[in-house]
Amino acid sequence: MKKFCVYGKGGIGKSTIVSNIAASLAGDDCIVMVMGCDPKADTTRNLIGHRIPTILDSFRNERADLINLNDVVFRGFRGIYCAEAGGPEPGVGCAGRGVMTAADVLKRLNAFEEIKPDVLIYDVLGDVVCGGFAMPLKNNLADDVYIVTTCDPMSIYAANNISKGIKRFAERGHVRLGGLIYNGRSAVNEPSIVEMFAEKLGTRVVGKVPMSNLISRAEIHHKTVIEYAANSTIAQDFKNLANEVYANSYKVVPQPLSDHDLDGITSEIDLFLREQDM
């Protein structure tokens, strides 16, 4: 089973990328499962067409031992198995603990043994803000991690911070950084900057997702691009990315940048913007 998780700054396009990778890989005897680990619970919406009840919804209303697999795992586009951790209302409780609880519920239900997915993808909230959101990095839940980033300084800063979390768990276990996924949906669109950042981290850019209106149009219809515009260029880009991730065997323990080194990256961004202005 190929198990990986996708991290990145909030709003960077993780769910879009995860759902399109899943849609690209599913079918042809490949069983894919996606687990959303964001309290917003919107990772799988484009795979199913609507929001699904979350694991924590069931946990809130039912004794844990009375929850069935069918209550928390749903089939979507191309038979993709979809689950959402969910979480508490904003501002109360502990969403991080919620992710751990949701993972525990799936474990108690023997979800992975029952479903036997060939590919398991975790889509995790913006940053490794606490131990709960680092859950997929622990306990052999995922083998490798991909970080989605744009050229924006804050996105790169977040990616570097996530790398610190990955490094911590990589040194304890087997999880590794599989690479960066470049999202071109940004005011600054210069892939070489992210490539430079990847090199400094000791990894590489495994794929690039260019800006495309088709992504927005597909999402308006609660669909992935793979389903909505299967023959489009952007759909092919997602397929290429999915294949690259699936076949990727180059995994590293990242070497996060110091603040000084990060300043070097942002200086490059500044230089690029000045050149654009001229």
Binding site: P88, V92, C94
Partner: peptide, 10 residues
């Protein structure tokens, strides 16, 4: 219990 820890104990 765990439920209160996730959803809040209020």
């Amino acid at each position: 219990h765990e439920r209160e820890i996730v959803f809040g104990g209020e």
